[in-house]
Design a binder for these strands. Structure first.
Length: 419
RNA sequence: GGGGGAAUGUCCCGAGUGGCAAAGGGGGCGGACUGUAAAUCCGCUGGCGUACGCCUUCGUAGGUUCGAGUCCUACUUCCCCCA
């Protein structure tokens, strides 16, 4: 991994120069396979929430690169595996989701892929499959006989996902223990159904991926490869993906395009180049120019990054609106109607609303108590004026141009509108 | 099967003589400084109430006590030793 092989295939070159590669199981063989013609590769996504979040973006972008390089991406929705739950990186078992919840999540997640990939029936068109299709059909004994024989407990215990749990003296159920078998079987099924020979994923998935590679090589004597991406953290060591206000969801109804734009705009200086290579289609020389900007000028690069990333997910119009709102709010101190808003019945406002309650309802604080503490710390502002008394009652007199501008900190802003 | 130890603030680690909303970190949030950056410094970090306050928290369920995270019993899960 440390010695960088010079790849010949366009795909692996692209992956390498843009920084997606952490580990590859058989680099030279995979390179040759990519050179020989279009390959099929997949990444699995479990349906644990009703939207994917920025942490999944690197995987989505990888599938995009794959297609750009003339290969066929398979998006695997984990309708079956989600019923079991991936123990990787979990300290303890998560509550199990019902079939209905899982299906609802899958329905809600799917749409974003259409923004990044071209689906269809052509040789390099993306396809989406659900592993419930085969996993749900296995009988227990059949599954054990067909696949269980290929896995030893000795080896399974050596994988990090299991070892971590044991080291922390946390219970791991037999159900969870089977997750890696299921993921391996997924790979095998996709190899048989679609000729898929490469599984990609985050570095935490290495163990699960390697198991699938070995299963295919052993059972079908076919070539199979695994590729993982580096664990994404910011330059100062924080885990990427959280932002002011929690998880950065990809679905617009859970995270507005404005917030999504803000997430990228707030990138640390040292990460700008790396993120542009990973999360945008900007040409490399352009990125090199932008990331070399010094001091405050690098803010221009961050805007380019935010625009490009937001355009990919939400479209150009949304990206421009987000930028315009941000410029107005931060650079000119003005209001923009594109800022996130919260609607309140006009009657309530006429009767008077306690600030702490309003701030909590509008999503600026998790509770009234938190809103009070926020105010006492000087972090709550009403129409740009810090308000330390959260018990104050707001009314129609506080409307400015028809709205009340509420802010928690400098970046979380909500426009309260009477309706 | 027997013996010993452990589970703490629903993010994590972690102290805790019977009077505890519970030390200290990390993380998170806010403030100052900046460039909507990083680093640094300061404050906050269970819920509800304007407030004296009320409610809910220390694996689960009971018990002793004026009072229990702290003592007792049973159960659950984990670790170690013996068989």
């Amino acid at each position: 991994m440390t010695s960088e092989p010079a790849f010949k295939s366009e795909f692996l070159r692209l992956m390498q120069t843009r920084g997606y590669i952490h580990q590859i199981t058989h680099p030279a063989e995979l390179d040759a396979a990519c050179l020989a013609g279009p390959i099929v590769a997949y990444i699995g996504f479990d349906a644990t929430a009703s939207s994917l979040h920025v942490g999944h973006m690197i995987q989505i972008m990888m599938l995009r690169r794959l297609q750009q390089a003339g290969h066929k991406p398979v998006v695997l929705m984990g309708g079956g595996t989600t019923k079991v739950g991936d123990p990787t990186d979990k300290d303890s078992q998560r509550p199990l989701l019902t079939d209905e919840q899982i299906q609802a999540n899958i329905d809600s997640i799917q749409a974003v892929f259409r923004r990044f990939l071209t689906f269809g029936d052509g040789p390099t068109d993306a396809v989406m499959v659900n592993n419930a299709e085969w996993l749900d059909r296995f009988g227990y004994v059949q599954f054990l006989r067909d696949y269980g024989v290929h896995f030893t407990i000795n080896r399974m215990l050596s994988f990090d996902s299991v070892k971590n749990r044991l080291d922390r003296e946390q219970p791991m159920t037999f159900l969870e223990f089977n997750y890696m078998l299921m993921q391996s079987v997924d790979f095998l099924e996709l190899e048989r159904r679609h000729g898929c020979l490469l599984q990609m994923g985050g570095s935490d998935q290495w163990g699960n991926i390697v198991n699938g590679v070995e299963l295919i090589r052993r059972v079908d004597q076919k070539p199979a490869f695994g590729l993982t991406t580096p664990l994404l953290s910011t330059a100062s060591g924080q885990k990427m993906g959280k932002s002011v206000g929690g998880a950065v969801w990809l679905n617009a109804d859970m995270r507005s395009p404005y917030d999504y734009w803000q997430f990228w705009r707030n990138t640390e200086d040292a990460d700008v180049g790396r993120f542009m290579r990973l999360f945008t289609d900007l040409p490399l020389d352009e990125i090199a120019r932008l990331e070399s900007l010094e001091g405050a000028q690098i803010n221009e690069a961050k805007k380019v990054l935010a625009n490009a990333a937001t355009t990919l997910l939400h479209g150009e119009e949304a990206a421009q609106a987000a930028e315009a709102a941000a410029v107005a709010a931060f650079e000119q101190g003005q209001l923009s109607t594109d800022l996130p808003s919260f609607e309140i019945p006009r009657g309530d406002l006429e009767a008077g609303v306690v600030l702490a309650a309003l701030a909590a309802d509008a999503g600026l604080a998790a509770s009234r108590g938190e809103a009070r503490r926020l105010a006492q710390g000087g972090g709550l502002r009403v129409n740009d004026t810090a308000e330390t008394d959260a018990n104050r009652t707001l009314g129609v007199a506080d409307l400015v141009d028809g709205v009340i501008k509420l802010a928690a900190g400098k970046k979380k802003i909500v426009l309260v509108r009477p309706v």
